[in-house]
């Protein structure tokens, strides 16, 4: 084992421990703001673990995306719960023991599968130009995947706006969609 592999292994185990501990802290700390920061740390640690598995593109995307997501999540926390519940101690849980039992059972099941399945291990031969190959695949043989993901993301944007819109079509028109809308103030083209 070369020096690079030793460093990668040490980095992986440090990030793995940080990811699990920070993930557990999300549901142990007594304020939502701290929970958000703990989750961000956990996600960054998973991103570093993916980097040690020599997947630079996916690891970097994970780290960058999760930092942004957690920043947005912190804003939502404070805006929905007000400053005090989001930043002060709180406990909003139910069925802690059954939840812990179910989670423990699932872990045992997954761990048994991981350890007992005879994985067909092959020596890792990661291509040196992996990122170039990913780019070529996304723009070539895997174009259909991107063509599928794009409309899904667009539909997500539309659905998000529809769900969060304070005054929808039926709020304005009621059951009679062909009559004049009940707007508090007039306006709009042709209305």
């Amino acid at each position: 084992m070369g020096l690079g592999e030793v460093v990668a292994a040490v980095l992986f185990w440090v990030s793995a421990v940080v990811a699990i501990v920070a993930g557990a802290l999300v549901f142990r700390v007594d304020s939502m703001a701290r929970a958000t920061y703990a989750l961000a740390v956990s996600f960054v640690a998973v991103g570093v673990a993916v980097l040690t598995l020599r997947q630079d593109f996916i690891g970097l995307v994970t780290i960058l995306m999760m930092i942004m997501e957690m920043a947005i999540m912190a804003v939502f926390m404070v805006s929905y719960m007000g400053m005090n519940p989001a930043l002060m101690p709180m406990d909003m849980t139910h069925a802690k023991r059954p939840s812990a039992a179910i989670a423990g059972g699932v872990f045992v099941l997954l761990a048994a599968a991981a350890l007992l399945i005879p994985w067909p291990l092959v020596p890792a031969r990661v291509p040196s130009d992996l990122i170039v190959r990913i780019g070529e695949a996304l723009m070539g043989s895997k174009m259909l995947v991107m063509l599928t993901v794009s409309p899904v993301l667009f539909v997500t944007i539309v659905a998000g706006i529809v769900l969060t819109s304070p005054r929808g079509r039926y709020d304005r028109f009621g059951d009679r969609l062909r009559e004049r809308p009940r707007d508090p103030e007039g306006g709009g083209v042709g209305r």
Binding site: F12, A16, A19, I20, G23, A24, V26, F27, M32, A35, S42, V46, A49, L53, M73, F76, M77, Y80, M81, M92, T93, H94, A95, K96, P98, S99, A100, I102, A103, G104, V106, F107, L110, A111, A114, L115
Partner: peptide, 25 residues
């Protein structure tokens, strides 16, 4: 060993998804 770490992360997340009352949590 890596799969064990992933399983631990999954189990911790499952515990939170079942036990928390706040939607964002």
């Amino acid at each position: 060993l890596v799969l064990l770490v992933a399983a631990a992360l999954f189990a911790v997340g499952l515990y939170g998804a079942i036990s928390q009352q706040v939607v964002v949590m």
